[in-house]
Design a protein around this nucleic acid. Structure first.
Length: 483
RNA sequence: GGCCCAUUGGUCAAGCGGUUAAGACGUCGCCCUCUCACGGCGAAUUCAGGAGUUCGAUUCUCCUAUGGGUCACCA
């Protein structure tokens, strides 16, 4: 349609958290704009006065900033088409609604909620489809004036043509056309003077020169009504990009209300922002190549809304984890340490070689949140059974473990410069002297020092991480246990 | 229920009339290895079903099934 400048918008309603599906929609809108050097704007849809949530807008700002989805126009930075908060645009909607009434494309409706409920109840009983019965469609001018003068509360409804059909074009779904008689005379302006989403989005998107309009697929079925509105005003109908939902499983959408993680939750669990963004970009969209790892900048270059999928995508934590692991492994040792330390500190209050610990941890960490448990043996020796010394693969058992521990204890005690290289050197000399396999000596050391089946790092590494005193102490205790 | 949309391995997906039906995650096996992991190699698993159209359908059409969305003074 309009081939002018690409302008997209992210228009969340402030609910108090960032939904993963919403974030993806924001991402797609952002990318679509950036790809073509267009504008990306932020608009807050807060027309439901009953659902105001304290601090909700801040969360939206923060999430977008954290993920580097910077906007060119928005409530905080302004812009030529403001205000960008719908509740501040009340007068604008009213003006346009009245204009519609004048044109005959909308009308005053004085029906009470009670009446509407009654109508729907009766319709349901008789097996009819719910919906407005057009009761106020043809009130006389006098009736309307009398009601208005008497201060009877009213809403303004869209007058849908009785016949004909309406279509719109979607970049991912193609052209969708429906019969007008399946459409309802929806409310445009509520009794409190606020517009409904169905009205506000049309006015705002037009006034803010938005094209294409990118949003969730739940609006697919109301889009024809919007076309009717655009047409009534003589405005150009924008192109649409409807994004399929992100699902928890085959039949449920991802939803915070049902316990699914929001963006903030994922971050708290220890997922990296870059990994989250990368993953959700791939949920319902795919590049024309095998490439899967993308920076935001790379996405900006290759993204094309035409490649968005038409079917719902199930959110797969396994894949997110994998991707997160990839991002973690790419971190510089310094960055990893900075991110990992808070999680390490949850279970390690004492001292140890944190640099070395981080070094061994980085390769074994998919989600930062797992770290706490991975290092929980460092401060305090866990209870363990001597069966742990038995490893078929290492050919160890409590008996030979005891032997080996007895062999390595004096070696460790005699070591003055407690570095990983030295420990490694001395122990391997011993291995050679004894003529045994590495594992036979080292596996028991690892168990003695950690009391765990799996640990980040082997015996030598753990000994180096924990220090001489603690290592020797634990080896001695293991010997007592094995006696 | 009406209307709209969708349907390729367990998951994300490529494909756009002729392919050995990519790739990734996950799973399994092997190698590496002082555990686990990382890394390397390999394997198994898919076109929802049925009619058409066509020399030929995963690709086009229709029907069925299944799933989703929507029918609010919520967005």
């Amino acid at each position: 349609m309009a081939l002018d400048r690409i302008r997209t918008r992210f228009a969340p309603s402030p609910t108090g958290y960032m939904h993963v599906g919403n974030l993806r929609t924001a991402l797609y809108a952002y990318l679509t704009a950036r790809k073509s050097g267009g504008d990306f704007l932020l608009r807050i849809e807060d027309t439901d006065q009953t659902r105001q949530v304290e601090g909700a807008t801040e969360i939206i700002y923060n999430t977008l900033k954290e993920t580097r989805l910077f906007w060119d126009e928005g409530p905080d930075i302004g812009g030529p088409y403001g205000p960008y908060v719908q509740s501040e645009r009340k007068d604008i909607y009213k003006k346009y609604a009245l204009e519609l009434v004048d044109m005959g494309a909308a009308y005053y409706c004085f029906c009470t909620k009670e009446r509407l409920e009654e109508v729907n109840r009766i319709k349901e009983l008789s097996g009819q489809v719910a919906g407005y019965d057009n009761h106020c469609r043809n009130l006389s001018k006098e009736e309307i004036k009398a009601n208005l003068d008497a201060g009877v509360p009213y809403v303004i409804r869209q007058r849908i043509p009785d016949s004909g059909s309406t279509y719109f074009d979607d970049l991912v779904y193609g052209r969708i056309e429906v019969e007008n008689n399946t459409l309802d005379d929806q409310i445009l302006l509520k009794a409190d003077g606020m517009p409904t989403y169905n009205f506000a989005n049309v006015i705002d998107d037009h006034l803010m020169l938005i094209n294409p309009v990118i949003r969730g697929a739940e609006y697919l079925s109301s889009a024809p009504k919007y076309s009717l509105l655009y047409r009534a005003y003589g405005w150009e109908i924008p192109d649409y990009v409807h994004c399929p939902p992100v699902m928890r499983d085959a039949q449920h959408k991802l939803s915070k209300r049902h316990g699914d993680a929001s963006y903030e939750d994922l971050v708290e669990m220890g997922y990296l922002k870059e990994a989250i963004l990368n993953y959700i970009a791939l949920l319902g969209w795919s590049p024309k190549s095998d490439k899967e790892k993308f920076t935001l900048e790379e996405l900006e270059a290759v993204f094309d809304p035409k490649n968005i999928s038409r079917s719902p995508a199930i959110f797969d934590y396994e894949k997110l984890k994998f991707l997160n692991g990839e991002y973690i492994r790419e971190l510089s040792p310094e960055d990893f340490k900075e991110k990992a330390m808070p999680y390490i500190k949850k279970t390690v209050k004492g001292d140890c070689d944190f640099d070395l610990l981080c070094h061994v941890l980085q390769k074994r960490c998919e989600v930062l949140g797992d770290i706490s448990e991975q290092v929980d043996f460092i401060d305090e020796m866990p209870e363990y059974d001597i069966d742990l010394f038995t490893s078929k693969k290492m050919k160890t058992n409590p008996e030979n473990s005891k032997q080996m521990l007895n062999e390595l204890l004096p070696v460790l005690e005699g070591l003055n410069d407690w570095t990983m290289d030295n420990i490694h050197g001395e122990l391997f000399k011993l291995i050679e002297k004894l003529g045994v396999k590495n594992g036979l000596l080292l596996y028991p050391l690892r168990v003695a020092v950690s009391g765990k089946q799996f640990t980040p790092g082997g015996g030598v590494e753990l000994a180096a991480v924990m220090g001489k005193e603690k290592t020797i102490d634990r080896v001695k205790k293991a010997l007592v246990k094995l006696a």
